[in-house]
Design a protein around this nucleic acid. Sequence first.
DNA 1: GTGATGAAAAAATCATTGAAAATTTCATTT
DNA 2: AAATGAAATTTTCAATGATTTTTTCATCAC
Lengths: 206, 206
Amino acid sequence: MLIDLTNSDKAAMRQKTPQKAPLRSSGKIGSDIRALRRSRNWTLNDLAEQLDRSVGWLSQVERNVSEPALDDIRKIAGLFSLPVSFFFTDAAVSDEAAYIVRAGSRRIMSDAPKGLAESLLSPDLGGAFEIVHSVFAPGAACPESFVRPTEEAGYVLEGSLVLFIDGVRFELYPGDSFHFAGEEITWINEGKTNAVLIWVIAPPVY
Amino acid sequence: MLIDLTNSDKAAMRQKTPQKAPLRSSGKIGSDIRALRRSRNWTLNDLAEQLDRSVGWLSQVERNVSEPALDDIRKIAGLFSLPVSFFFTDAAVSDEAAYIVRAGSRRIMSDAPKGLAESLLSPDLGGAFEIVHSVFAPGAACPESFVRPTEEAGYVLEGSLVLFIDGVRFELYPGDSFHFAGEEITWINEGKTNAVLIWVIAPPVY
DNA sequence: GTGATGAAAAAATCATTGAAAATTTCATTT
DNA sequence: AAATGAAATTTTCAATGATTTTTTCATCAC
C-alpha cells in the first residue's frame, strides 16, 4: 500500500521536539490575523514592519503559538480598519463555533461609513469567499464608487437598494439578486427603511 | 512603448476572415453548456462522446457559433439532470440580464429530490461560486448524505432546517448561517413549513 | 514562564520549459 | 446552417531552479 504524505505530515514527522503546543488561550485571533493579512496580499514582513515587530514574532502569533499584547491587537485592528471587538467574539457552543454563526452573534466588521453596518456570516475569515450581512440605513450612500478585483454577488432580504454597475442604475427589491466582477460599483439606499442584503465576495477582502 | 498583447488579441489580429459572428440568436445556451461541462470536469471529447457528436461541433456550440438541435439540448439537459427549461429562461431587460436576477425569474434547477426546489440566483453559471435559492418542503430529507470537494455556506431565510455536519446535528433558524468544506453532509426539514435558504457553493457544481 | 528577536533552515511561490492534452479553426460534405 | 475530421493553436501540467516567504530555534528580556 502506498501512502501519500502531505507536506504537513512530513513536517510533523521530521520534528524531534514536540514544539510549543499551538493554541493556548481561546486562540483564533492568530488565524484571523493571518487571513486578514493574506486578503491584503501582505507578507509577514510587510505587516511586521508596520507593527514594528519581528517577522518571527508575527509568524508565531499568526500560528497561535504566542499571544500579541493588547496594544499590538489595537494596532492590528487599526491597520485593517476593524473594531477591536472583531477579534473577541464569543464563540458559542464549542462544536458550533467551527461551522455555525447564530443570528445573534455575528462578528461586526464595521459601522464606519456611517450608514452601513456589516457583520460576518462565516465562522471565520479565509476560504474561497466570504459572506457578509449588510444593513444600509435609509439615505446611506456609498462614499465613493469602487472597483475590486473580486467576484461579488448579493441578495436583497429587506428594503430596497439602488446599485450602479458601471454607471447603469438598477433598483433592487427583496428577492432580487445581482452578480458582478470587476465593474465599477456604487450604491445608495433611497428608501425610507433599512436595506438588508447578503453579500458574497470572492476572494475575501476583509 | 511596449504593448503586451494578450493571446486573444493576437488571435484576433491573425484572423484573415472575420469568422462567423459568435452569438447569433439569444445565444447564451452555449456558454451555459460550457460552464456545466467544466463544473463536471469533462472535456469536449467526454461530452461529445455522450452526445454522439464531434468535438468540433461541440466546440462551436459552446462558443455560440452554431446552434444545437432541440434534440441535442434535451440530451444535454438530461446529462446534467436539469430541466430543459433551464436553458431557456427569459432574459429580462437587456441591460439587466448580465447582472441581475429578479425574484420572479430565476432559473429553476430542480424539483427532483421530491421536496427540494432549487433555483439559480446568479445570472449565469461559471465564475468562482454559485448562489442557489433552495426551498425545502416540510418533511423533506436528503436522500443520502454527501461529500463534495467544495466550500459551501448558507443562510436561513425562513423556516428551520436540521443540518448534519460530519454527523453532528445543528438546528438552524432564520438569520443563522453555516459554513463547511469537505465534511459529510445531510439535512432534513423537521418543521411544518418550508425552509428557505440561500446556499453558496464554490466552485460551482451545477 | 512568556514575549520578543535575529538568523538559519525549511517550505512555498513563481517563472521557465518541454511534452501532452484540449480546444479552435476551417475546408468540405450533408 | 449543421456537422465532420484533421490540422493548427492554445491550454494544461509536471519538472526544475531561483526567489521569496515562513517557520524554527537558540537566546535575551521582562
